[in-house]
Design a protein around this nucleic acid. Structure first.
Length: 214
DNA sequence: ATCCCGAGGG
DNA sequence: CCCTCTGGAT
């Protein structure tokens, strides 16, 4: 089975299982999504969603957050991973938004990556979700699911995985596929104990057929 | 003990 | 390439 055939089968399955998959992060503006995605590093979306309402009500705009002291921001985000780093990143990010981008979230990947706390994955999320660009953010779920399903091979870095996936998947399906992989990875193709009995792709899954035959 | 929508620095 | 940051759930 070629990778293209494999992809067709996977798309067919996900279209039925999750026809309109979107991010589970709660947000009402590009600024709020940017804050949420920065917080989501090594932290569950569920916890981020518990944090952001209070944080956003205290710092409702880049301008407000730019004037904040990292110590105060820390108090709002202390229950997520790396709160010290993220507090500094959030304030620095807001300051750069105000100074360099007129208080607006930029659409260009290179511009986004200039922001403190914004690496390639976060930049790609903003570009994809806010600006509808055909880019593939590769996080731990995307990397794992794409690997297990045999959509990528020998990818040692997220960037290598990203390049393979962007080349493989039709442009108009890249962002939707990103969300499919995230949600499938979160609820079905779990890292430690995949729920293969809930998965409709077991017949074509190399990972399942090699490692988990029951 | 391992994982969660990683990023920055050496 | 490596390391550190670092809370909470399972």
């Amino acid at each position: 089975m070629s990778r293209k055939e494999r992809l067709e089968r996977i798309i067919e399955y996900f279209r039925k299982a999750m026809p309109d998959a979107v991010t589970e992060l709660k947000y009402q503006s590009p600024y709020e999504l940017l804050v949420a995605v920065i917080l989501s590093a090594q932290c569950t979306d569920k916890r981020v969603n518990q944090i952001t309402p209070l944080l956003i009500s205290r710092f409702p705009s880049p301008h407000k957050l730019a004037e904040a002291k990292p110590d105060e921001v820390f108090q709002y985000i202390r229950s997520c991973s790396y709160p010290n780093n993220k507090a500094k990143h959030l304030v620095g990010m807001a300051q750069m938004l105000v100074k360099e981008f007129n208080g607006n979230v930029p659409s260009d990947i290179e511009d986004l990556m200039k922001l403190p706390g914004v690496g390639r994955k976060t930049a790609n999320v903003i570009a994809a979700v806010v600006f509808n660009k055909p880019v593939m953010p590769v996080d731990t779920h995307v990397f794992r699911v794409a690997s297990r399903l045999g959509l990528i091979q020998n990818a040692k870095t997220p960037l290598a995985a990203e390049k393979q996936l962007v080349q493989l998947i039709p442009e108009n399906l890249i962002t939707l596929s990103h969300h499919w992989f995230i949600l499938h990875g979160r609820y079905i193709c779990i890292s430690r104990k995949p729920r293969c009995s809930k998965c409709g792709l077991v017949d074509i899954c190399p990972y399942r057929n090699k490692n988990l035959k029951e």
